[in-house]
Amino acid sequence: MTPFAGKTYWLVGASHGLGREVARQLDREEARLILSARSEDALQELTQELRHATALPMDVTDTNAVAEAARDAGPLDGVIYNAGAYEPMRTQDWDSGSVLQMSDVNFTGALRVLGEVVPGFVRQRRGEITLVGSLAGYRGLPASIGYGASKAALISLAETMRYDLKGSGVTVRLVNPGFIKTRLTVKNSFRMPQLLEPEDAARHVVAAMRTRRFRTDFPRPFSFAIKALHLLPDLIVYRGK
Rank of each mutant, 00 (worst) to 15 (best):
G13F: 07
L26G: 04
S156P: 00
V122L: 14
L18Y: 06
R51N: 13
A228C: 05
S168C: 02
L100F: 12
L26H: 04
S36D: 05
I34L: 15
Y163N: 14
K166L: 12
A225D: 03
S223C: 14
L11Q: 03
D72R: 15
L154E: 02
Q44I: 11
P57N: 08
N64G: 13
R162L: 00
Y238H: 15
L26N: 02
G120F: 12
T130H: 08
T61C: 12
Y86A: 02
Y86T: 05
D27L: 03
L33A: 11
A110T: 14
V60L: 10
G169C: 00
S150T: 09
T47N: 02
K151V: 06
V79W: 02
D104F: 08
V186N: 11
G137I: 02
G6H: 02
S36I: 08
R123C: 06
T216M: 11
R183W: 00
E87T: 14
E116G: 06
T63C: 01
N106L: 09
A31L: 06
F190M: 13
R215S: 12
S168V: 01
G97N: 13
D104H: 11
R32M: 12
A73T: 03
V99G: 01
K241W: 13
R183D: 15
V12P: 08
R123T: 14
R51K: 14
P57V: 09
D93G: 05
Q48I: 00
A23D: 04
N64A: 14
L33C: 07
M58Y: 08
F222E: 03
R203A: 15
T130Q: 01
L111I: 09
P233R: 08
S39T: 13
A65M: 05
D59W: 05
L35P: 09
L11H: 06
V12T: 09
L154D: 04
A31I: 09
F121S: 04
G140L: 02
A143V: 08
G97Y: 10
Y238E: 13
G140H: 01
V22I: 15
E49S: 13
R123M: 11
G13L: 07
D234G: 15
R24H: 10
Q44A: 10
L56T: 05
L135P: 11
P75T: 09
T61S: 10
R212K: 15
Q101N: 14
V113P: 09
M161D: 03
G6I: 03
P193L: 01
L232Q: 08
I236K: 06
Q25I: 10
L35I: 11
M209P: 02
A228I: 06
L18D: 03
I34T: 08
I236D: 00
D217T: 08
P177Q: 03
N82P: 08
A136M: 12
A153R: 02
R173C: 01
A149K: 04
S15E: 06
A55T: 08
R71Q: 14
G178H: 01
D62T: 04
M192C: 04
E29I: 00
T108A: 12
A208V: 05
G120E: 14
N176V: 00
T2R: 10
K7E: 06
S39M: 03
R173M: 09
M192Q: 13
A69I: 01
A5N: 12
S134K: 05
S103N: 14
